[in-house]
Design a protein around this nucleic acid. Sequence first.
RNA 1: GGCCCGAUGGUCAAGAGGUUAAGACACCGCCCUUUCACGGCGGUAUCACGGGUUCGAUUCCCGUUCGGGUCACCA
Length: 485
Amino acid sequence: MSHGPICTRFAPSPTGYMHIGNLRTALYAHLLAKTTGGRFIVRIEDTDQVRLVEGAVDVILDTLRMTGLSYDEGPIVGGPNGPYVQSERKDIYRQYADQLVAKGYAYYCFCTQERLQEMHDENGIGGYDRHCRDLTPEEVQQHLDRGEPYVIRQKMPLSGTTTYYDEVFGEITMDNAEMQDQILLKSDGFPTYNFAHVVDDYLMQVTHVVRGSEYLTSTPKYVLLYDAFGWQRPHYVHLPLLMGRSDDGKISKLSKRHGAVSFQDLVNSGYLPEAIVNYIALLGWCPKDTNREMFTLDELRECFSIDAISKSPSVFDYEKLKWFNSEYIKQMDPARFAAAARQRLQDCTPAHVDLDKLIGLLQSRVATLDEVVEMSRFARERLPLDTELYTNKKNKTTPELCRTILEDVRPLLADCAVWENTALFELLKEYAAATERKAGAIMWAVRIAVARQGVTPGGATEVMEVLGKEEALGRIDLALEELNR
RNA sequence: GGCCCGAUGGUCAAGAGGUUAAGACACCGCCCUUUCACGGCGGUAUCACGGGUUCGAUUCCCGUUCGGGUCACCA
């Protein structure tokens, strides 16, 4: 591939949340650097003063910390080529923009925003007529003397083509005539992304630019900038986009309208960072020579490679994420799961409920931590019960049969000295044997009566144990009352 | 609309000039079982279309179609 150590960067703008597509970009950039023992840099691209969001940098850094995407240089930790926040590098960009103007690769533009607006067509697709491209130095000076606001634009070649090589997509060629004289330095003195990232990537010695493929067609403009400065172009690694399907079935770049698309959203609804990382790693990349799907970050660092990155976009599938998450929950250290579950349950669970037992039943049955709450509703309240639930084809139960069973079993349970799963199980089995009834039928009747919901975490005796003797018996009484009505 | 990119089941995907075209999720069925879940076994379903090149194309080339991206003082 390439010679010398690889250096990649993750350069998000602080929007206040970490989009899952951005996280995948960060992951790949991190992996590419780390598989080869290279450097990974984090740089904050906050040149849009209008869209600044308070605390947004923390969101980014917290996400990287939670996912384990460690970086060698970046905000707070610093590094040899800092600062790593673009708003703190304002002077640097101006200096390089001036250099470009002096070399004839950029020029001052004094056109008003109103004038620019007028050139946009009905679809808002604009063009700039290069009105100021050929202003004489005297004219420029006159405007400047009048104190008029200005921007600095890149002077694109008017003919010919520009070609660059992308590590994923191969050779990309664009007609120079397609490229606008894009703005490098805005009238507020801040650079645009188009300019700032080129300067920074050069100064920070980034060797591989990893980013989404939405930049595929604007990259020729950036390589022209490298050429103008006389800098060596970096390697480009454009990633296939992450897509979402909206209600009308249309597929497009994953965005908020597709649901929870930020890392924080997913974590808040009970997804584990490890599961999220594992899933998104496989969206657009596939390990060589293996069918394996479960990967820790360390394992990914060992087998990641650019040539296994796919070219075609992939649709984000919440079902598959859920599956990964359930696998990770099952593998979770029980104590850690218990802590997470307890946090969600303790405030809404009545005192008579054996929370530890309940949590123990839950771990192998939930796909997300949030499901812990929904799945234990039965323990929290006496749900409205449809008598038809007593009817079960397989166990051949009917409401009438269940009533008989419950009447029989109620005194036996009341006499039960040790209110514990195994003892209760034995008791009910003895009763089944004595009456020559199917154990399944007994269990069904009892489970429905005490849980009052069709799907429960655990069987009849486990449910009873969780509820405690008093509540369980109370519910059997209630069930009998309802069945005798 | 111009330009750029892409196309293997519903989704993620492996694959290769000759294969019974892997695997995973989802779905369906069966088994296990104390319900549910877990687990086990099995099943339905894919190479967008048309031309070439070739003994042979899903794989290579061209076109079409479809999908996506992009054309900002946003990144």
